[in-house]
Design a protein around this nucleic acid. Structure first.
Lengths: 150, 150
DNA sequence: CCGGAATACTTGCGCTCGCAACCTTCTTGG
DNA sequence: CCAAGAAGGTTGCGAGCGCAAGTATTCCGG
């Protein structure tokens, strides 16, 4: 139970500081940064909305609105799928990638100063190992043909 | 960095499930539960707003609104301090305590099934030890005379 | 080939909450 | 004793986001 309390309080503090820095220095919210970063690592720099949502911290509806905003800002664009008209891809634009690159140092520095520097390396490993499995649950990575859409 | 991602994702998942259960079964949000629980452990079952906020996951303004709601629901009441007219205490009412007692099993079960049962005991210890220090920072527990108010 | 179930996303609605500004009440230096 | 500033809470405002319902498309049993 102590672990639970530590988890939610540490999360609140670290995230609050990161968000403040990222917002004032780069004009990006943390969820927005996470989405951009995740897209940048994806093949063709794009992902289906559902993938993005299950990976991300957001519900589908939250993701839709966030992507709306990113599209308005010209950082991502929506692409439709040729073989299944239901699915939508969010694709990183060049401007979005540039924005991500610009924001990366701020984010990295924040994570360092607020989290990494305050823990021993073996503690970081322990956290990653213990909490990592919570990430993978939802989708068992079904084989979705990646290149079947324009 | 893996630790950071694991932290925010695990937090999102665990908290989302807990909130859903607590809300549907007991009609309490997780922050509300946390405030009630913290008050129940305090001397005279009351705390200053500032203490509550720095301990809690909320900013002062967020806490004000949450306490507003809890007062409307009759679960806490505001008390003024005789020696310093600026400070406000939030005090747990009997109804609030009863509500907390009723909600306790739901919360405990949730934390168990969604967090504790999924980790080894030594992992829980590691998390508590690593993330615990983040909780204590903000206030160094200055000596505030506890009994100086009605 | 067709109608119902399932899937992928989107929107209406409402609540929560953070920031900045504000008011009130102590405290402190002159 | 009286400003000037600090400290404790509260509010105006607006952004973010979850839930449930809605729309569009695909899948599947008969």
């Amino acid at each position: 139970m102590a672990a639970f309390h530590a988890l939610i309080r540490a999360h609140a503090r670290v995230v609050r500081m990161l968000e403040a820095e990222l917002e004032t220095e780069q004009g990006l919210s943390l969820p927005a940064y996470e989405v951009l970063a995740h897209l940048s690592e994806a093949p063709d720099r794009r992902r289906r909305m559902t993938e993005l949502a299950s990976f991300a911290i957001l519900t589908p509806s939250g993701l839709t609105r966030l992507v709306d905003k990113l599209v308005r800002d010209g950082l991502v664009e929506r692409q439709r799928c040729g073989t299944d008209a239901r699915v939508v891809y969010a694709a990183l634009t060049d401007a979005g990638f540039a924005r991500l690159v610009a924001a990366y140092p701020t984010h990295l520095r924040g994570v360092r100063t607020h989290l990494i520097d305050r823990l021993a390396p073996e503690q970081l490993d322990a956290i990653a190992e213990a909490l990592g499995p919570f990430t993978d649950d939802p989708l068992a990575h079904d084989a979705v043909p990646p290149g079947d859409c324009l």
